[in-house]
Amino acid sequence: MTEHPSQSVKFYQTGTHTVGNRLLDETKRTVQASVDRSNAITSGHRACQGCGEALGARYALDSAMRATDGQLVAVNATGCLEVFTTPYPETSWQLPWLHSLFGNAPAVATGVAAAFRVKGRKDVRVIAQGGDGSTTDIGFGCLSGMFERNDDVLYICYDNEAYMNTGVQRSSATPPFARTATTQAIGEAPGNVFGTGKNLPLIAMAHNIPYVATASVADLHDLEYKVTKAMGMRGARYIHILVPCPLGWGSASDATIQVARLAIESGLFPLFEAEHGEVTQVSKIRRRVMAEDYLKVQKRFAHLFRKEGKDVDKIAVVQRMADHNIKRFGLMDEETAQ
């Protein structure tokens, strides 16, 4: 395991938890703290209030812009991010950006990377990005192909766990029991009844690509560290960022980061890095919460917390997922895990 640089910083009032910190060395502050950040997505976009994806995308791309000295091209799958940033006649993007289709962003990015390579522009780097629908479902084939060829593309999935753009329908990243427009909270088995969702980071790792990481809008330093690290590498790289959706999750617009934090601190969304298929670094849980604490702040799980009583069994299923992650990834130190 390599040392995570954002964890080696000594105590400085807020350490590296806040976006900036006037007490920290400039080089240890986030890109987001800088007045010179590129604002790859600028103001005026039409994302909902408190949109985690808008935030996550700016975090990631600004960081990549810094890492590449602005020599960056983004390819975008169809979805919320594409729609809310580029309705004619206005775009929010400030970097070269291409949208083709819902399911082909990884392949389009392969083509862009190939073009720059053949033209000798090795300095220009390519990011492909999309939501969980375009990543885990419709674009999965293209993504796997891009991985397998080890094309020089960083693919970023902004995972909000359903098809939000079309009105909150289930995707293969939707967690169990979540209410969506196609997994209604009615009947014998309310909410999503399918499995535990497709774990794309692990699938990406199975391709033995140079770099796979998970990240969250709740941990900016970690996110920027991972994007920067990914941009320092060549070949196919994958970063999976959890981006809560206030609309789809039924969480408050000001709770986006808090909900993302609860996902991490419960163990339901482990933060880790893997290189060539092996986990190399794990972010430990800092202040553990129970899965229930995460579930109950989201209306999509409201049917687990009905007035007549909590659905203890289903909550326990989710808790077991969290416990499994904690064990599998070693999210807690031995003594605190007891």
Partner: peptide, 24 residues
């Protein structure tokens, strides 16, 4: 010339779209 073996025709033309948009 970059000769790219892809995983489907959909990917083939998609790669072509990206490459062409990048000026190749």
């Amino acid at each position: 010339c970059e000769f790219i073996n892809v995983e489907s025709e959909f990917a083939a033309l998609s790669v072509a779209i990206g490459a062409s948009a990048a000026g190749a």
